Lab assay of single mutants.
Amino acid sequence: ELVLALYDYQEKSPREVTMKKGDILTLLNSTNKDWWKVEVNDRQGFVPASYVKKLD
Rank of each mutant, 00 (worst) to 15 (best):
K33M: 11
K33V: 11
A5F: 01
G22P: 01
T31W: 09
D42S: 13
L4V: 15
E16M: 05
N29G: 07
K21Y: 06
K20I: 08
E11K: 14
A49R: 09
A49K: 06
A5I: 02
Y7C: 12
P14K: 10
S30K: 08
Y7I: 08
K33F: 09
K33Y: 08
L28K: 06
V40T: 15
D23E: 13
F46H: 05
W36A: 05
K21C: 08
D23M: 14
K54W: 08
G45W: 04
G22K: 02
A49H: 04
R15H: 14
T31D: 15
P48M: 04
V3G: 14
E1H: 12
V52M: 06
V38E: 01
W36R: 01
G22H: 06
K21R: 11
V47G: 01
L25Y: 10
L25S: 02
A49T: 06
L6S: 03
P14V: 10
L55K: 05
V17S: 02
Q44Y: 07
E1F: 13
D23L: 06
K12V: 08
V40H: 15
V52G: 01
L27N: 00
L4I: 15
N41W: 11
Y9Q: 00
S50D: 09
P14R: 09
T18K: 04
T18Y: 04
P48R: 03
E1P: 12
Y51T: 07
D8Y: 04
N32F: 09
K53F: 10
W35A: 02
V52N: 01
E11W: 05
L4R: 09
V47L: 02
V40P: 00
T18A: 07
A5H: 01
V17H: 04
V3L: 14
G45H: 02
D56P: 13
S30N: 09
P14F: 09
N41T: 09
D8F: 04
Y7G: 05
T31C: 12
P48I: 02
M19F: 10
L27P: 00
L28Q: 03
T18R: 06
M19R: 01
V52F: 05
T31K: 11
L25Q: 00
R43N: 07
K37E: 14
S13C: 10
Q10M: 13
P48V: 02
V52Y: 01
G22Y: 05
I24C: 06
E1A: 13
P14C: 12
E11T: 08
K33I: 11
S30D: 15
L27F: 03
N29H: 07
Q44L: 07
I24K: 06
Q44V: 14
G22V: 00
K20Y: 11
V17I: 15
T31Y: 10
S50T: 11
K37V: 13
W35F: 07
L25K: 00
K54G: 05
D56Y: 11
L4Q: 12
T31V: 10
M19H: 00
R15P: 06
V40S: 15
Y51I: 07
E39K: 12
Y7T: 07
M19I: 15
D42N: 15
L2G: 03
E11R: 12
S30V: 07
D34N: 14
T31Q: 13
S13Q: 08
R43Q: 08
N32V: 05
K54D: 04
G45S: 02
E16S: 06
G22T: 02
L6Y: 04
R15C: 14
L2A: 08
S13P: 04
V3C: 12
K33W: 08
T18W: 04
Y7D: 08
K54I: 14
L2Y: 15
W35D: 01
D56H: 13
S50V: 09
A5V: 10
V52I: 09
E11S: 15
A5D: 01
S50H: 14
Q10W: 13
D34S: 11
V3K: 00
L25F: 07
K20S: 09
V38Y: 00
V40I: 15
M19Q: 02
K12F: 06
I24D: 00
V3S: 04
